[in-house]
Nucleic acid binder design. Structure first.
Lengths: 139, 139
DNA sequence: AGCATTATGCTAATAATTTAGCACCACCAA
DNA sequence: TTGGTGGTGCTAAATTATTAGCATAATGCT
């Protein structure tokens, strides 16, 4: 198994429009065709968006449920799985696989945005990582 | 300006193969055509890879320098810019823009991989973020 | 020198993607 | 009922992406 096998979103194989649509679906969780159209850049017509969605459904990357007369589309892969997959891919591509480098970059980017509650949570996560490191060293 | 304008890598507009190649270039920093070919999944022939690279050069997304008889290709956008851009895009798509959620996910993913040195660095980054939060609150 | 290997410039054929449009349906208001 | 609005199923044409191959050049080895 290679790291590519961790790509649960299958993003590496998506065409330009497919990828735009998947990003929109992951961001929102689920969307109607019309909302997908509103969410993607330089959107084509409604029927073009539907044809693209139909293709993704055919490929079993996207599924839909009916809500009255309209279809609500959502990614087949679970949200949490997609997150992890995207994180790993980004680590590999831009941070040489280093979690610490990525976290540092994240924190450096958004200093003014963290609430005290969020900082507490982060502190807990660091403490937890530190404990895991300590026990790993003792083994 | 929208968040899409922060996409310095221009990834949203890349075709399937273009994106694979850009990922390989960002990961490695720079690559020969042959190495690009080795780095992308289900690679076509050498001349196909070169044609794709030529297209990216034409679009000014990639540039190259000559090293003896061979060309070494590299992304035009700076590494650091690409990192930040990718991070922001990922935050937006998978974490509702929340840095804290992303950091938590990162730390939860790789508990056993952090060295004590890395943990110290993370602690400093958190402390720094905490200080920024405190001063923001006092203003 | 000759040959093999490795490289680029360029092209066009092939495949895939993207797109719009027709036909039809359901619902609602006048 | 009619017309408008909003929806899907399906298709094929237009556009773009992908691919391999020819011609040429450079390098290294025998």
């Amino acid at each position: 198994m290679t790291l590519d096998d961790l790509d649960k979103t299958g993003a590496a194989q998506l065409s330009r429009r497919e990828r735009q649509i998947m990003d929109a679906l992951f961001e929102a969780g689920e969307l109607s065709a019309q909302d997908v159209r509103a969410a993607i850049p330089d959107a084509p017509g409604y029927s073009a968006v539907r044809a693209l969605l139909a293709k993704l459904v055919e490929k079993k990357i996207v599924d839909f449920r009916e809500e009255g007369p309209r279809y609500i589309y959502f990614p087949v892969v679970a949200q949490e799985e997609a997150r992890i997959s995207a994180l790993q891919k980004m680590l590999k591509t831009f941070f040489g696989g280093s979690t610490a480098a990525a976290v540092n970059a994240l924190l450096g980017m958004n200093k003014e945005k963290l609430s005290s509650e969020e900082i507490d949570k982060l502190q807990q996560a660091i403490d937890s990582a530190a404990k895991a490191e300590t026990s790993a060293r003792q083994q």
